[in-house]
Amino acid sequence: MPATQNQGWLDFEQPLVELLDRLEEVTALGAAQEVERIQKQIEELKLKLYSQLTPWQRVQMARHPRRPYTLDYIERICNDFVELHGDRAFGDDPAIIAGLGKIDTVPFAIVGHQKGRDTKEKLARNFGMPHPEGYRKALRIMDLAARFEVPILCLVDTPGAYPGIGAEERGQAEAIARNLREMALLEVPIIVIVTGEGGSGGALAIAVGDRILMQENAVYSVISPEGCAAILWRDGSKAEEAAAVLKMTAPDLLSLGVIDEIVPEPPGGAHQDWDEAAKLLKKAVLANYYYLNTLPGSELVSRRIARFNSIGVFQTPENNPRQ
């Protein structure tokens, strides 16, 4: 996407957009010195704008309309990807991508939420909010992968599972729950990367893995900041405060011990440079794969279950805090 196509930029990014526009103008004029000067300004501005983002700005970055989505990454990290469709029972859910391909020479099954870019595609993809058949498709492909000893990559980016009539009729809760149980038992490496919004159970349903990573500007939470604000203060517009309270940024989750690693993004975020973002993501996937691949399947499963078992903060009355 050309930077100067002025759509989807956030309010606090406007000064950057102006510089990017200016850069395009002077580049067209062939003014080499001026180009260099503006490029330098851009780098400095990026550093200033993005180096100390507030939790709410992270949420905005995670939801950035220009952020690369699952298919944008697959295109860049994967050779010969074949998308596979349908849950073999009800239908095919365009809000979830599933398929097979190779990353370098390593075969992978890849599943991920898929948001739409323009209005038409947003509707077609249901804003990345899956129905039960999406989760069932994901599980079908992950189970297929496990039977042929193929590792699994999950890319997580959803506001949440869709709250609708059909979704309830077809067992949204059951579909999510079953994925949680079955993913725990798959005897192949599962690498999870939250690339945008990790929206509650709808995200978790494809996020039970051996290594759980978040991109620098991704968020992951039990409830949206808007939802939290509505419950806490009966005021959805206080989402900015709720975002801080929920501790939903990548550094927060790392310090809470819920994720293993933060995947860096290009300066100013993944939306500035999709190719570079994909390169960094691919590097993280392969590094983690080569580590996990040394472990037998049964060992992966017991470590995976132990990992989730260890998450929880409680104490016994002897005041003996245990994490």
Binding site: S200, G201, V222, D252, F308, I311
Partner: peptide, 9 residues
Amino acid sequence: GIISLMQMA
């Protein structure tokens, strides 16, 4: 927060 979400898994 996220700790409670993980109890589902």
